[in-house]
Every structure is written in C-alpha cells, then in structure tokens.
C-alpha cells in the first residue's frame, strides 16, 4: 500500500494554490489603483476551492485545438468587486481595502502553508518510524 499524497495532504495543497492566485488578482488591483476605468476584481475563494477539489468537472480535451474549460481563475470564480464609493474616473480600486485583503490573504497563505508543512512533517516522521 503506497502513500497517496492526495489523501495525505488533504485540502491544503489546493488551498495554497488558490491563495497564490488570489494574491495575484489583488496585486493586480493594487498595481491598477490609478488606472482610469479599471474595475477591481477578486476571487470567490469558496467557489474556486470547490472547483479545484472536484477535478472531474474539468472537460476532457481530446484535440489540441480544444480550449480548456475551468482550471485556475476561471471566469465564474473571478468576480468584480462592488464599489464602496463612486469615483470620477470609473476606477473601483479602494487601495486601503485591497491592501487589507492582500495582507489577510498572505496570513491565510501562511496558515495553509503551516498545515501543509505539518502534513509533510507527519509523513516523514511516519517514514522514519520515530
């Protein structure tokens, strides 16, 4: 009976991946904080993690010309943020809020990382028989 990494690591590997994608989206919002007409976006963590968890929902591609459906940051988990206040240039980025979300996301990333690291530590302890 071999070790199934998927089962041993649980949800944490996917969670870490989603956290990275979310960091990317939030970094993009912050970079475009002064771009006229830019609409802030965010990832629906729940929806995206669900998508990551059941890989069966992904469509099979049997031809090189098929477009992949789903996967990371697909359109249905990437949403537009509801603006908190109107702005003259159509930009919906609230730098303070985005920075807070980004920091929160980094903390969540570290939490997911700790869990994942713990799983690995557990595995190596089991292998060494300590």
């Amino acid at each position: 009976m071999g070790i199934s990494f998927d089962r041993a690591l649980g949800i944490h590997a996917q969670a870490l991946e989603v956290r990275v994608s979310r960091a990317e989206v939030l970094a993009n919002n912050l970079a475009n904080a002064d771009t006229p007409g830019y609409k802030a976006r965010d990832i629906d963590f729940q929806a995206m993690l669900g998508q990551q968890m059941d890989g069966q929902l992904e469509m099979a591609t049997t031809n090189g010309k098929h477009l992949p459906v789903g996967g990371l940051a697909s359109e249905d988990s990437l949403k537009y943020r509801v603006p908190t206040q109107p702005s003259l240039d159509g930009n919906t980025v609230d730098t303070q809020m985005e920075t807070a979300e980004f920091t929160k996301n980094v903390m969540d990333y570290q939490a997911s990382f700790q869990f994942l690291n713990g799983r690995f530590k557990g595995l190596s302890a089991a292998i060494r028989g300590e």
């Binding site: 970094a27 970079a31 990333y109 570290q110 530590k121």
Partner: peptide
C-alpha cells in the same frame, strides 16, 4: 502607490521563500 507595490512585492518574496522551505 509606489510604496504599495513595493509592499506587495515584498509579500510575494516572503511567500516564495516559504514555499522553498516546504518540508
């Protein structure tokens, strides 16, 4: 704005370093 972007880059750097220390 510049400062915010520096902070973001710094955070990404820390995240990357963490991945390297996995396990």
């Amino acid at each position: 704005g510049f400062q915010t972007n520096v902070d973001v880059m710094d955070a990404a750097k820390t995240m990357m370093q963490r991945v390297l220390s996995l396990g």
